[in-house]
Amino acid sequence: MSHHMLLAGPAAETTRVLAYWVLAVISVTSALGMILARRAVHCAMMLALVMLSLAVMYVELGAPFLAFVQVIVYTGAVLMLFLFVLMIVGITAADSIIETIRGQRLWAALGGIALLVLLSLVIGHAAIGPSPPATAKFGNGNLNALAQLLFTKYVFPFELTSALLITAALGAMVLAHRERTGPKPTQRELAARRIASGRPTPLPGPGTYAQHNAVDMPALLPDGTQSSLSVSPVLSGPTPDVSDYPEGLPEGSSEAEPARLASPAGSAGSADSGGQEAGDQW
Protein backbone atom coordinates (compact mmCIF):
# COMPACT_ATOMS: atom_id res chain seq x y z
CA MET A 1 0.00 0.00 0.00
CA SER A 2 2.79 2.37 -0.80
CA HIS A 3 0.97 4.00 -3.67
CA HIS A 4 1.46 7.42 -2.13
CA MET A 5 5.16 6.97 -2.50
CA LEU A 6 5.00 5.23 -5.85
CA LEU A 7 2.55 7.47 -7.64
CA ALA A 8 3.69 11.03 -7.90
CA GLY A 9 3.48 13.80 -10.43
CA PRO A 10 0.65 15.19 -12.53
CA ALA A 11 -0.35 11.82 -13.98
CA ALA A 12 -1.00 10.40 -10.52
CA GLU A 13 -3.02 13.48 -9.63
CA THR A 14 -5.19 13.05 -12.72
CA THR A 15 -5.70 9.40 -11.85
CA ARG A 16 -6.75 10.32 -8.34
CA VAL A 17 -9.26 12.91 -9.56
CA LEU A 18 -10.64 10.51 -12.13
CA ALA A 19 -10.94 7.71 -9.53
CA TYR A 20 -12.72 10.04 -7.15
CA TRP A 21 -15.32 11.14 -9.68
CA VAL A 22 -15.95 7.65 -11.02
CA LEU A 23 -16.41 6.30 -7.50
CA ALA A 24 -18.53 9.25 -6.43
CA VAL A 25 -20.88 8.81 -9.36
CA ILE A 26 -21.09 5.05 -8.79
CA SER A 27 -21.76 5.36 -5.08
CA VAL A 28 -24.36 8.13 -5.33
CA THR A 29 -26.15 6.39 -8.20
CA SER A 30 -26.30 3.09 -6.39
CA ALA A 31 -27.35 4.76 -3.14
CA LEU A 32 -30.23 6.40 -5.02
CA GLY A 33 -31.00 3.06 -6.63
CA MET A 34 -31.07 1.51 -3.19
CA ILE A 35 -33.81 3.76 -1.90
CA LEU A 36 -35.74 3.52 -5.19
CA ALA A 37 -35.56 -0.22 -5.89
CA ARG A 38 -38.70 -2.08 -4.92
CA ARG A 39 -37.15 -5.47 -4.27
CA ALA A 40 -35.14 -5.81 -1.09
CA VAL A 41 -32.52 -8.00 -2.81
CA HIS A 42 -31.80 -5.28 -5.34
CA CYS A 43 -31.39 -2.85 -2.45
CA ALA A 44 -28.82 -5.17 -0.88
CA MET A 45 -26.85 -5.41 -4.13
CA MET A 46 -26.85 -1.63 -4.52
CA LEU A 47 -25.66 -1.27 -0.94
CA ALA A 48 -22.81 -3.69 -1.71
CA LEU A 49 -21.77 -1.44 -4.59
CA VAL A 50 -21.76 1.64 -2.32
CA MET A 51 -19.71 -0.17 0.31
CA LEU A 52 -17.14 -1.40 -2.20
CA SER A 53 -16.70 2.08 -3.68
CA LEU A 54 -16.22 3.43 -0.16
CA ALA A 55 -13.54 0.78 0.44
CA VAL A 56 -11.62 2.03 -2.59
CA MET A 57 -11.97 5.57 -1.31
CA TYR A 58 -10.50 4.52 2.03
CA VAL A 59 -7.38 3.35 0.19
CA GLU A 60 -7.29 6.69 -1.55
CA LEU A 61 -7.53 8.45 1.81
CA GLY A 62 -4.65 6.52 3.31
CA ALA A 63 -6.62 3.96 5.32
CA PRO A 64 -5.68 0.58 3.82
CA PHE A 65 -6.58 -1.28 7.02
CA LEU A 66 -10.07 0.20 7.07
CA ALA A 67 -10.47 -0.60 3.39
CA PHE A 68 -9.90 -4.27 4.09
CA VAL A 69 -12.15 -4.19 7.16
CA GLN A 70 -14.81 -2.54 5.03
CA VAL A 71 -14.66 -5.31 2.46
CA ILE A 72 -14.43 -8.16 4.97
CA VAL A 73 -16.82 -6.94 7.68
CA TYR A 74 -19.35 -4.88 5.75
CA THR A 75 -19.49 -6.43 2.33
CA GLY A 76 -18.55 -9.88 3.54
CA ALA A 77 -20.32 -10.32 6.86
CA VAL A 78 -22.99 -7.66 7.33
CA LEU A 79 -24.35 -7.80 3.81
CA MET A 80 -24.33 -11.60 3.80
CA LEU A 81 -26.32 -11.47 7.04
CA PHE A 82 -28.80 -9.16 5.32
CA LEU A 83 -29.10 -11.59 2.43
CA PHE A 84 -29.57 -14.55 4.78
CA VAL A 85 -32.38 -12.76 6.57
CA LEU A 86 -33.91 -11.84 3.21
CA MET A 87 -33.87 -15.52 2.28
CA ILE A 88 -35.63 -16.37 5.55
CA VAL A 89 -38.14 -13.55 5.35
CA GLY A 90 -38.90 -14.17 1.70
CA ILE A 91 -36.92 -13.39 -1.39
CA THR A 92 -40.04 -11.95 -2.97
CA ALA A 93 -39.93 -9.10 -0.50
CA ALA A 94 -40.87 -5.91 -2.32
CA ASP A 95 -42.12 -2.71 -0.83
CA SER A 96 -45.66 -1.65 -1.47
CA ILE A 97 -45.90 1.56 -3.44
CA ILE A 98 -49.06 2.59 -1.60
CA GLU A 99 -48.49 5.38 0.88
CA THR A 100 -49.93 4.55 4.28
CA ILE A 101 -49.23 8.01 5.68
CA ARG A 102 -50.50 10.70 3.37
CA GLY A 103 -47.75 12.92 2.04
CA GLN A 104 -45.04 10.79 3.59
CA ARG A 105 -42.82 10.86 0.53
CA LEU A 106 -43.27 14.58 -0.01
CA TRP A 107 -42.38 15.38 3.57
CA ALA A 108 -39.49 12.94 3.51
CA ALA A 109 -38.13 14.60 0.37
CA LEU A 110 -38.54 18.04 1.94
CA GLY A 111 -36.80 16.84 5.09
CA GLY A 112 -33.99 15.37 3.02
CA ILE A 113 -33.51 18.62 1.13
CA ALA A 114 -33.54 20.54 4.41
CA LEU A 115 -30.93 18.20 5.87
CA LEU A 116 -28.82 18.54 2.73
CA VAL A 117 -28.98 22.34 2.88
CA LEU A 118 -28.15 22.33 6.60
CA LEU A 119 -25.14 20.03 6.24
CA SER A 120 -23.92 21.86 3.13
CA LEU A 121 -24.08 25.17 4.99
CA VAL A 122 -22.15 23.70 7.92
CA ILE A 123 -19.46 22.34 5.65
CA GLY A 124 -19.41 25.47 3.53
CA HIS A 125 -18.71 27.54 6.63
CA ALA A 126 -15.96 25.24 7.83
CA ALA A 127 -12.46 25.79 6.55
CA ILE A 128 -11.49 22.49 5.00
CA GLY A 129 -7.96 22.84 3.77
CA PRO A 130 -6.02 20.59 1.46
CA SER A 131 -4.73 17.39 2.97
CA PRO A 132 -1.12 17.50 4.16
CA PRO A 133 1.45 15.28 2.42
CA ALA A 134 0.94 11.68 3.40
CA THR A 135 3.26 10.34 6.05
CA ALA A 136 4.19 6.71 6.62
CA LYS A 137 1.20 6.12 8.88
CA PHE A 138 -1.11 6.58 5.89
CA GLY A 139 0.84 4.04 3.89
CA ASN A 140 2.96 1.11 4.94
CA GLY A 141 2.95 1.95 8.62
CA ASN A 142 -0.83 2.26 8.84
CA LEU A 143 -1.42 -1.02 10.61
CA ASN A 144 1.33 -0.51 13.18
CA ALA A 145 0.27 3.04 13.94
CA LEU A 146 -3.37 2.04 14.30
CA ALA A 147 -2.49 -0.84 16.62
CA GLN A 148 -0.33 1.43 18.74
CA LEU A 149 -3.19 3.89 19.11
CA LEU A 150 -5.78 1.18 19.70
CA PHE A 151 -3.91 -0.51 22.52
CA THR A 152 -2.76 2.61 24.31
CA LYS A 153 -5.10 5.58 24.00
CA TYR A 154 -8.25 3.68 23.05
CA VAL A 155 -7.74 0.51 25.04
CA PHE A 156 -10.79 1.09 27.24
CA PRO A 157 -13.26 1.57 24.35
CA PHE A 158 -11.63 -1.44 22.74
CA GLU A 159 -12.40 -3.57 25.79
CA LEU A 160 -15.92 -2.18 25.86
CA THR A 161 -16.50 -3.34 22.29
CA SER A 162 -15.69 -6.89 23.38
CA ALA A 163 -18.46 -6.66 25.97
CA LEU A 164 -20.74 -5.25 23.27
CA LEU A 165 -19.97 -8.09 20.88
CA ILE A 166 -20.62 -10.74 23.52
CA THR A 167 -23.90 -9.04 24.42
CA ALA A 168 -24.89 -8.86 20.76
CA ALA A 169 -24.11 -12.54 20.18
CA LEU A 170 -26.12 -13.53 23.26
CA GLY A 171 -28.97 -11.23 22.27
CA ALA A 172 -29.12 -12.68 18.77
CA MET A 173 -29.20 -16.21 20.15
CA VAL A 174 -31.98 -15.36 22.62
CA LEU A 175 -34.04 -13.51 20.01
CA ALA A 176 -33.65 -16.10 17.29
CA HIS A 177 -34.40 -18.99 19.63
CA ARG A 178 -37.81 -20.58 19.23
CA GLU A 179 -39.43 -22.60 21.97
CA ARG A 180 -41.23 -25.67 20.68
CA THR A 181 -44.81 -25.30 21.84
CA GLY A 182 -46.08 -28.68 20.70
CA PRO A 183 -44.48 -32.12 20.80
CA LYS A 184 -42.05 -32.89 18.02
CA PRO A 185 -43.83 -34.78 15.18
CA THR A 186 -42.66 -38.34 14.83
CA GLN A 187 -41.68 -39.89 11.53
CA ARG A 188 -44.94 -41.83 11.48
CA GLU A 189 -46.98 -38.63 11.85
CA LEU A 190 -44.92 -36.91 9.15
CA ALA A 191 -45.48 -39.83 6.78
CA ALA A 192 -49.22 -39.84 7.48
CA ARG A 193 -49.38 -36.09 6.88
CA ARG A 194 -47.54 -36.51 3.62
CA ILE A 195 -49.89 -39.21 2.36
CA ALA A 196 -52.89 -37.15 3.42
CA SER A 197 -51.58 -34.09 1.56
CA GLY A 198 -52.29 -35.76 -1.79
CA ARG A 199 -48.70 -35.63 -3.02
CA PRO A 200 -46.60 -38.32 -1.40
CA THR A 201 -43.66 -37.86 -3.77
CA PRO A 202 -41.24 -34.92 -3.77
CA LEU A 203 -41.80 -32.10 -6.22
CA PRO A 204 -40.23 -32.71 -9.65
CA GLY A 205 -36.80 -31.27 -10.26
CA PRO A 206 -36.43 -28.38 -12.70
CA GLY A 207 -35.37 -28.76 -16.27
CA THR A 208 -34.99 -32.51 -16.25
CA TYR A 209 -36.16 -33.01 -19.82
CA ALA A 210 -35.72 -29.46 -21.04
CA GLN A 211 -32.91 -28.06 -23.16
CA HIS A 212 -31.15 -26.47 -20.19
CA ASN A 213 -30.55 -27.70 -16.69
CA ALA A 214 -30.91 -24.26 -15.09
CA VAL A 215 -33.13 -24.11 -12.01
CA ASP A 216 -35.59 -21.71 -13.65
CA MET A 217 -36.28 -24.01 -16.63
CA PRO A 218 -39.45 -25.99 -16.07
CA ALA A 219 -39.36 -29.74 -16.48
CA LEU A 220 -41.31 -31.22 -19.38
CA LEU A 221 -44.03 -33.71 -18.65
CA PRO A 222 -44.33 -36.89 -20.78
CA ASP A 223 -46.94 -35.21 -22.97
CA GLY A 224 -44.62 -32.29 -23.68
CA THR A 225 -46.27 -29.68 -21.48
CA GLN A 226 -44.29 -27.78 -18.90
CA SER A 227 -44.63 -28.72 -15.27
CA SER A 228 -45.20 -25.59 -13.23
CA LEU A 229 -44.53 -27.55 -10.06
CA SER A 230 -40.92 -28.10 -11.06
CA VAL A 231 -39.90 -24.46 -10.70
CA SER A 232 -39.78 -22.68 -7.37
CA PRO A 233 -42.50 -20.01 -7.20
CA VAL A 234 -39.75 -17.56 -6.30
CA LEU A 235 -38.15 -18.00 -9.73
CA SER A 236 -41.14 -18.73 -11.90
CA GLY A 237 -42.41 -15.26 -12.75
CA PRO A 238 -40.83 -11.91 -13.55
CA THR A 239 -42.59 -10.32 -10.59
CA PRO A 240 -43.56 -13.06 -8.19
CA ASP A 241 -45.32 -11.84 -5.11
CA VAL A 242 -46.21 -13.25 -1.79
CA SER A 243 -49.80 -13.97 -2.79
CA ASP A 244 -48.40 -17.13 -4.38
CA TYR A 245 -48.07 -18.35 -0.82
CA PRO A 246 -51.39 -17.93 0.97
CA GLU A 247 -49.69 -18.74 4.26
CA GLY A 248 -46.63 -16.57 3.74
CA LEU A 249 -43.91 -19.14 3.24
CA PRO A 250 -44.46 -22.72 2.15
CA GLU A 251 -42.47 -24.30 4.95
CA GLY A 252 -43.50 -23.80 8.54
CA SER A 253 -46.90 -22.50 7.47
CA SER A 254 -48.66 -24.84 9.86
CA GLU A 255 -46.75 -23.24 12.72
CA ALA A 256 -47.75 -19.79 11.58
CA GLU A 257 -51.44 -20.24 12.19
CA PRO A 258 -51.40 -20.14 16.03
CA ALA A 259 -49.15 -17.08 15.89
CA ARG A 260 -51.55 -15.31 13.59
CA LEU A 261 -54.53 -16.20 15.72
CA ALA A 262 -52.71 -15.02 18.82
CA SER A 263 -52.30 -11.50 17.46
CA PRO A 264 -55.73 -9.90 17.16
CA ALA A 265 -54.23 -6.44 16.76
CA GLY A 266 -52.49 -7.50 13.57
CA SER A 267 -55.65 -8.73 11.94
CA ALA A 268 -57.49 -5.64 13.13
CA GLY A 269 -54.76 -3.47 11.69
CA SER A 270 -54.85 -5.05 8.27
CA ALA A 271 -58.62 -5.47 8.16
CA ASP A 272 -59.21 -1.86 7.18
CA SER A 273 -56.89 -2.09 4.20
CA GLY A 274 -58.46 -5.24 2.82
CA GLY A 275 -57.25 -8.78 2.55
CA GLN A 276 -55.39 -8.38 -0.74
CA GLU A 277 -53.45 -5.44 0.62
CA ALA A 278 -52.00 -7.61 3.36
CA GLY A 279 -50.37 -9.72 0.69
CA ASP A 280 -49.17 -6.63 -1.13
CA GLN A 281 -47.38 -5.23 1.89
CA TRP A 282 -44.29 -6.74 0.43
Binding site: A40, A108, G111, L115
Partner: peptide, 22 residues
Protein backbone atom coordinates in the same frame (compact mmCIF):
# COMPACT_ATOMS: atom_id res chain seq x y z
CA UNK B 1 -19.40 16.48 0.31
CA UNK B 2 -19.87 12.93 -0.94
CA UNK B 3 -20.41 11.74 2.61
CA UNK B 4 -23.08 14.42 3.12
CA UNK B 5 -24.89 13.30 -0.03
CA UNK B 6 -24.79 9.64 0.96
CA UNK B 7 -25.95 10.48 4.48
CA UNK B 8 -28.93 12.46 3.19
CA UNK B 9 -29.87 9.67 0.77
CA UNK B 10 -29.76 7.20 3.66
CA UNK B 11 -31.89 9.46 5.84
CA UNK B 12 -34.51 9.86 3.11
CA UNK B 13 -34.51 6.10 2.66
CA UNK B 14 -35.16 5.57 6.37
CA UNK B 15 -38.10 7.96 6.15
CA UNK B 16 -39.58 6.59 2.94
CA UNK B 17 -39.09 2.83 2.97
CA UNK B 18 -41.45 0.56 4.88
CA UNK B 19 -39.71 -2.78 4.65
CA UNK B 20 -37.79 -3.00 7.92
CA UNK B 21 -34.80 -4.72 6.29
CA UNK B 22 -34.46 -1.96 3.73
Amino acid sequence: ALSVILFVIGAVGVLVRRNAIV
